[in-house]
């Protein structure tokens, strides 16, 4: 082993310091996800014509902010967060994201769902990285009992924690970014920023039919269950699932023709009507500028701390 501070701890510390916290983490994620899912699906059959993304009809700072400024600012700022390397600066970014969350009055359930969605991937880093990060000069490694090969590298833990905080900080910004304007308005803003209009249209269409097909898939699954199908780990299940997918594709494919014919019958010529007229105010630009300056300051402090 290279020059590293090695702290020897008795073997029984391993369950106390590592295994128990891991189990608590996994259990907490499971529990929260069950809670969030029961909270978020109160009833079936939502109204397809109104996308749930625009439930927010509020009038917070984020709702009034010009959608183009909002998109650019949050996207660029998210990249800035990605560039951070220090735990302290990542924490500062997290604090700023929390402020944005409060300012946008985001729905706590949806925020929780977003956090749970990244929980699995991020916990993989928290669990694996401390044990696999290579030992470098000046690292602190905790060794439990005689398990020399299982060194718990504190630098790996710090790195994993930094990644987690950065991931959470960006994820928290998604609700203020996306849930404070109706989806067509957000896509219109993207089109005004130079994203090809066709992409926005395709997103709207996919979004609309996603609900239709989900509904259809649920009906097909209910039919299979009524006929006695239960999912198991065997080849027969895979075959049934494959037939299910095949049927879904056949039905959807036939539907694409009918959808397109219906669109043309209603006068579709490669464009959807514009949902809103966007007007840029000075306030929008000042907010965007101020936020980005804050981001640059974070990066600056981050690099400064790294050198010092």
């Amino acid at each position: 082993m290279v020059d590293a501070d090695i702290i020897g701890l008795p073997l029984w510390y391993l369950p106390a310091l590592v295994i128990v916290p891991m189990i608590v983490l996994v259990a907490a994620i499971k529990r929260l996800s069950r809670f969030a899912h029961t909270r978020s699906t109160p009833g079936e059959a939502p109204d397809w014509s109104v996308p749930p993304v625009d439930t927010a009809a509020g009038s917070t700072l984020f709702h009034r902010w010009d959608v183009r400024c909002k998109l650019i600012t949050i996207l660029v700022y998210s990249f800035m967060i990605t560039a951070l390397t220090q735990v302290t600066m990542a924490l500062a970014a997290l604090g700023l994201s929390c402020l944005a969350l409060v300012a946008a009055r985001a729905s706590p359930t949806r925020v929780l769902l977003r956090l749970l969605a990244i929980a699995g991937f991020v916990s993989m880093f928290l669990v694996i990285m401390p044990f696999t990060a290579p030992v470098r000069v000046g690292d602190t490694v905790i060794v439990f009992g005689r398990l020399d090969w299982l060194g718990f590298n504190l630098r790996g833990l710090v790195l994993a924690v930094t990644i987690t905080i950065k991931a959470v900080a960006i994820t928290l910004l998604m609700e203020p970014l996306l849930a404070t304007a109706p989806l067509p308005v957000t896509l219109h803003g993207l089109a005004k920023l130079g994203v090809p209009e066709m992409i926005g249209q395709m997103l709207l269409l996919s979004y609309r039919y996603l609900h239709v097909f989900r509904h259809e898939a649920r009906r097909m699954a209910a039919g299979m269950q009524v006929r006695g199908f239960r999912k198991r780990t065997d080849l027969a299940t895979l075959k049934a699932v494959a037939n299910f997918l095949g049927m879904l594709f056949v039905r959807s494919f036939e539907r694409t023709e009918r959808v397109f014919d219906a669109m043309r019958a209603r006068g579709y010529r490669g464009r959807f009507p514009e949902p809103v007229e966007l007007r840029l105010k000075r306030r929008d630009v000042i907010l965007a500028g101020g936020w980005l300056v804050l981001g640059i300051a974070l990066i600056f402090l981050d690099r400064l701390a790294w050198q010092g």
């Binding site: 269409l205 996603l210 239709v212 989900r214 594709f249 959807s252 694409t256 959808v259 397109f260 579709y268």
Partner: peptide, 15 residues
């Protein structure tokens, strides 16, 4: 075919 592809994307997404 772009609108049709969008509809098909939804099917793959559900799958």
């Amino acid at each position: 075919a772009l609108p049709k592809l969008a509809v098909m994307t939804a099917a793959f997404f559900v799958a």
